[in-house]
Amino acid sequence: MNILEFREVSKVYNQEKSGIHDLSFSVKQGEIVALAGPSGSGKTTALNIAAGLDEFCDGEVRLLDRSLQNLLPQELLNLRRNDVGFIFQSYNLFPVLTVLENVEYPLALKGVRFYERIEKAKRCIEEVGLAGLEDRMPSALSGGQQQRVAVARALVTEPRIIFADEPTANLDAVTAEKLLLLFRELNDKQGTTFIFSSHDPRVLKFADRVIVLADGRLAH
């Protein structure tokens, strides 16, 4: 079953310059898929569109059996809140919140009560291998640790799909490898689908499948 489907999707930024052209691909439930390609090839654009963060001009995007362009703002919000996780290249943790509080955030949004929230967040922090660092501030963590917190934050609502835009770009090779192994582990345990972008061949090998982009199209 396809969890994500791009059907001839185009996104034009300026008149000439475009992010992606007639892009079609699909991702199955439970896959780990990598979007590869050089800088400027349209990876970020594709991921943002797939996660419902950005608009597109042409074609159709289906996420979790729903056509994104037909969704009401409230439905899109619920999708982001409940079914989708997002991990950013630069971690983007909330700097005023502790590790635990950062991971609590999506649960608090959903109105999950205090004890359940703490329990779930702690379990997630443990899963990403950061047990014991719950009360640290993000600034007191290494890049790899921060990205793990971001993973825990994306994971805590148990979304069916997690998008990660160049999650390893700011990490050294060893740490990057560990992060991908974590994706693999979570995928094995919980069946979470991962779609990540990267142009680093060393991390691409951890994907089940690699979709290569060039100039906003599928490369062959």
């Binding site: 996660a51 919000l77 982001r80 809140r81 409940n82 996780g85 909330f94 934050r153 994306a154």
Partner: peptide, 12 residues
């Protein structure tokens, strides 16, 4: 940027 992250991860 932080508000962007909030919105992206499901804040209305």
């Amino acid at each position: 940027k932080e508000f962007g992250v909030m919105l992206a991860i499901g804040t209305a």
